[in-house]
Design a protein around this nucleic acid. Structure first.
Lengths: 159, 159
DNA sequence: CTGCCTGCAAACGATTTGCACCAGC
DNA sequence: GCTGGTGCAAATCGTTTGCAGGCAG
């Protein structure tokens, strides 16, 4: 992600905090920046490790709470995936997922063919107000097809 | 789900166990039947409670293990959702999801408009072999729009 | 008979909660 | 100064593991 784009996003975070009357602290800034610096879907623990590089005394708890705040503010998505540890994604661009049913790996991709799907009628009927969508393709990744790899939490790696 | 359909599915489970040289036990049968009896996405704990009705001495562990076995055999899907407890789905029909970003509720729906999407080119490139897909619509459910409900594990209720 | 299954109890690991202190605004 | 944030430690809760005895094939 380009540096100026990141700054812009941090600014938006600051603004949203203001709007809600919430303090914009150094810890919050650092947590969001750490997340923006990655293009995968880190766990809270991974973000915590990254924030430590800047703020050695930060508490794991603050990172957990900040990530939830970001989700609340709509600046970050909690990734839907079959593992059990929460994973966060700062990429709000519409994009899709390949999920390996063997090892739970989750890989992003964008493809024009899946842009512009209509909002489902069922959503109206069920009272849902739809914001966006993601297509999840279930399958088996290359590694698992070759070796017989088993389920693991190493769901998403660097690109 | 119609009773004869269920029987058929249980038979398939038995056959798959045979194929793999695994015993087909009363506990395994009961766990699968309990799952088939529901049309939502129960947690292991919920399945455990249901199995108890039939087999009062069953262990929670056996249920956990059976559910994983079913996933392995491809008879059950582990649902991708933003909560932390595992949820299982015996409905292998292609269907889609509405996910509430506030309360994490997850609702199934089928709609013709989303049938027959092409297999993504990106999958080939990334070495994925795609079996099927689900479209996940992110949004806010009726309850959350009206009351200010907060995130909870009560992600999926009965239909 | 043998291997896998079962049930139990203890271990684990991610996340949450309660609380005293501190810092933005 | 007041409100909410932070960091710590303890608690929670779903899930996993190790193991002794039991059952399906």
């Amino acid at each position: 992600m380009q540096p100026q784009k990141e700054d812009q996003q941090v600014e938006r975070f600051r603004a949203r905090c203001r709007q809600r009357g919430l303090p914009f602290t150094a810890q919050r800034r650092a947590a969001y920046e750490a997340l923006l610096a990655r293009d995968d879907h880190p766990t809270a623990e991974q973000v915590f490790e990254a924030v430590r590089a800047t703020l050695p005394d930060v508490s794991r708890m603050t990172v957990y709470r900040t990530l939830e705040l970001l989700v609340d503010l709509g600046l970050v998505h909690k990734v839907c995936h079959p593992g059990k540890v929460a994973r966060y994604d700062c990429n709000l661009h519409p994009h899709h997922h390949l999920v390996c049913v063997r090892c739970n790996r989750l890989v992003d991709f964008e493809e024009a063919a899946f842009e512009g799907l209509p909002s489902p009628r069922a959503a109206r009927r069920l009272g849902f107000e739809v914001d966006d969508y993601t297509v999840q393709f279930r399958g088996v990744c290359a590694d698992c097809r070759h070796h017989g790899e088993r389920r693991s939490e190493q769901a998403s790696r660097r690109r």
